[in-house]
Each structure stands twice: as structure tokens, then as C-alpha cells.
Design a protein around this nucleic acid. Structure first.
Lengths: 195, 195
DNA sequence: ATTATCTATAGATCTATAGATAATGC
DNA sequence: ATTATCTATAGATCTATAGATAATGC
């Protein structure tokens, strides 16, 4: 029954990783300790030897969601001619809209996180800064104006994904994504970039 | 114990109204049938004589939230010189951010509503159309372009409120609101309109 | 007689804890 | 000896239903 110290560390990390996906997919209230533990191949009894409370896991899972997605974006944008445009186009794609459990934590969880602990809300503050940094000018060219633009662009991206996900009208959903892309990046020359 | 037909109708309506506020404030999973009924001055046993299920109440409560807020906005904007600007400024105010239980259902509940029944999601589709209509040109001047702009403006408004509510940094919260207002309406001539 | 509301409860959760078990780490 | 994980369970929910009660509406 017992397991090596290293195996235990891995088990714990697997709980955080599966929670990070399941919380985004089903919401924090939508999955119980049992679900999270058994998804990681464990039983629920061991949970409180690894975490102080569910809220503590939520905090870690949100932080991991942030770090993972940021690592993904930084890799995806590395060496791009226009990283900001590439970022915005990919973020506002149908793929990102549909892959909730691997996507940005802001549209997925910010609505509920508003009511969570200060520690959890501060992860969301970090997330806002992290995303705004990627939308802003290169570090040496930043101004109050460019920062305001970055925040306003982020608001539009997050809002568009949120609305595109909640509507039951698939056509409206795509229309919302396209409107946000075109508005932020300027309309495409032809009907080229609906994908 | 029994009550007149008219009184019963009023009781039922009071349950929907208090639910509409409580769901926005605490989330659908955050309030139980007991809470909703006792907030309306009733006991929980009578609930299922009035509603088929909790989901049915959620649908009605969201629809009422939409109708109430739209009636408010239409009154608030009636006769304004520039109704669109007045709408955007008020929606993106600190008051709207802080009055969650009386505010727009989109930032408050869209995140959870994604996982709800089709009937509930279709209320959110109606909400998107209703808000976009108020942001679009007068009916006879609408184009595909103006509609896309309305949707993109709505995304930014909803996203800005969502982010301004989730962060635990009050300064960042105000910065997000101001950035969205300035971006949508154009920067103010002087530092006039932070309020 | 009908019915709106009440009390009481079933059955299924959910978070958290207690104590047993069996393998690691000294 | 320590400890990671297991089984079992406490206590508090939550949705939904059953049956009683008392006032309305015919």
C-alpha cells in the first residue's frame, strides 16, 4: 500500500494535473475529491495527507493551468514573425473554444473564482498580468497606453470565448469569434481567415 | 396553510425573482432549493408543486434577469443624446462591477451556464442578441459590419467585467474597466471620466 | 373537493477525519 | 519506525418525494 517518496510526489502531482483539467471542464463545484483522486488512480481517503483542503488544491490546480498554458503559448509563439497576431488568432480559434479542459483558465473559471479564497483570486490576478504581458509591446517599448490596450484586448478575447462557449447557436458562436479576431487584428483582405 | 390562487402566483414569482438575484450572486450550485424558498418566505417542500426541477427554475430566473436588466437599460437610455456611449460607460462602471446580483447575467453566469441544459443556454443566446441590439446602429442602418462591431464590443464589455470582478487587486480592477471604456469610446479629452 | 403549503424523510451526494495496512527508509 | 494509501464512516449538505394540514373556490 505504501509507495516510495518519489512515487508519492508523482501521485500528488498527477492529482493536481487532472484537477487542473477537470475543474476547467466541469467547474470547481462540479467535481468532488473522489472524482479527482480516482481520476488519478487513487482512493479519496489519502487526499488530506497531501492537501490541507479542497481550496488549497484549487489554488494549485489553477496555478498549474496558468503555468502550463503559458508554457504552451511561449513555445507556440517563439520565433513567429508577428507573435501577437499569431497569439490572438489561435486564442480566438474554434479549437481553443472547444478544448476547455486544456485552455485558458480565465473564461473557464473566473466566474466562480470571484467567490473563492484570496489565494485563489490572486492566481487569477497573476494570470491577467501574464496574458497582458504577451499582448503588450516588447518590454522596452511599453507605455501606459500600450498596457491599457493590452488589457482591453485581453478583455475582448476572454469575453468572446466566454460568449462563444455559452451560446447554443453554433453559427452565432463562430460569428463572435470572427468578429473579435477581425476587430483586434483588422479585417482580413479577403474571406481568408475564417479558420 | 393554503393561500389564494393570486397569492400563490405572487409567491411563485417571488421565488423566481429572489433566485434571479441569488444565482447571479452565489452561482447556481451555490444556493439550494431551501435557501431560495426561505429567502422568499416559504419552506422548501412546496417547491416541486411550482417547478418541475431546479433546472426549470434556473431557466426562468435567467430569463427574468435578462428581462429586468433590459427594461432597466431601456429606461436608462431613453432620450439620451448618445445612448450607446451612455450604455457602455454605465455598464463598465464600478457600480455595475460591484452590484453582481442586479447586474448583467452574462459575466455573472455564462461560465456555469455552458454546462446547463439547452433551454438555459438558449436564454443566454437571447441575451447576447439583446445586448448586441443595444450596441448596434439604429435598426435601419445595420450592416454585417455594424453587427460584427456590436458583438465584438459586447465581448469586451463582458470580459472586462469578468476580469475586474475576479482580480483581488482593486487598482488593476479599475484599470481594466477604464481601459475598456477608453478603448471602446475613445480616450477622454482630459482625465475626466474615471468615475 | 381542491390545492398551496407544511413537516418529514429518502437517497445521493460531498468534505473531512479515523484507524488499519503494508511497503519504504533508516 | 515511519508513512503513503486504503477502507470505513461521520456529519452536513442537496434534490426530490410523500403525506398531512388548512384555507380557498365551487
Amino acid at each position: 500500500m505504501r509507495v516510495s517518496r518519489d512515487q508519492a510526489r508523482q501521485n500528488r502531482q498527477r492529482v493536481v494535473a487532472t484537477s487542473s483539467a477537470l475543474f476547467r471542464e466541469k467547474g470547481v463545484d462540479g467535481v468532488g475529491i473522489s472524482d479527482l483522486m480516482s481520476e488519478a488512480g487513487l482512493t479519496h481517503g489519502g487526499f488530506y495527507k497531501q492537501f490541507g483542503s479542497k481550496a488549497e488544491l484549487v489554488e494549485e490546480a489553477c496555478a498549474l493551468a496558468l503555468d502550463d498554458t503559458m508554457a504552451f503559448w511561449d513555445g507556440y509563439l517563439e520565433g513567429a514573425a508577428d507573435p501577437r497576431a499569431r497569439f490572438i488568432r489561435a486564442y480566438l480559434s474554434q479549437q481553443q473554444r472547444d478544448r476547455v479542459s486544456e485552455g485558458c483558465l480565465l473564461p473557464a473559471l473566473a466566474g466562480e473564482a470571484r467567490r473563492e479564497t484570496p489565494a485563489i483570486r490572486s492566481v487569477f490576478t497573476r494570470a491577467i498580468h501574464a496574458y497582458a504581458d504577451r499582448l503588450d509591446q516588447p518590454v522596452d517599448a511599453r507605455t501606459a497606453q500600450s498596457r491599457a490596450e493590452a488589457l482591453s484586448t485581453l478583455s475582448e478575447m476572454v469575453g468572446a470565448i466566454l460568449l462563444a462557449r455559452v451560446t447554443d447557436d453554433p453559427q452565432l458562436s463562430n460569428e463572435i469569434l470572427k468578429a473579435a479576431r477581425d476587430h483586434i487584428l483588422g479585417a482580413p483582405p479577403e474571406a481568408t481567415s475564417d479558420r
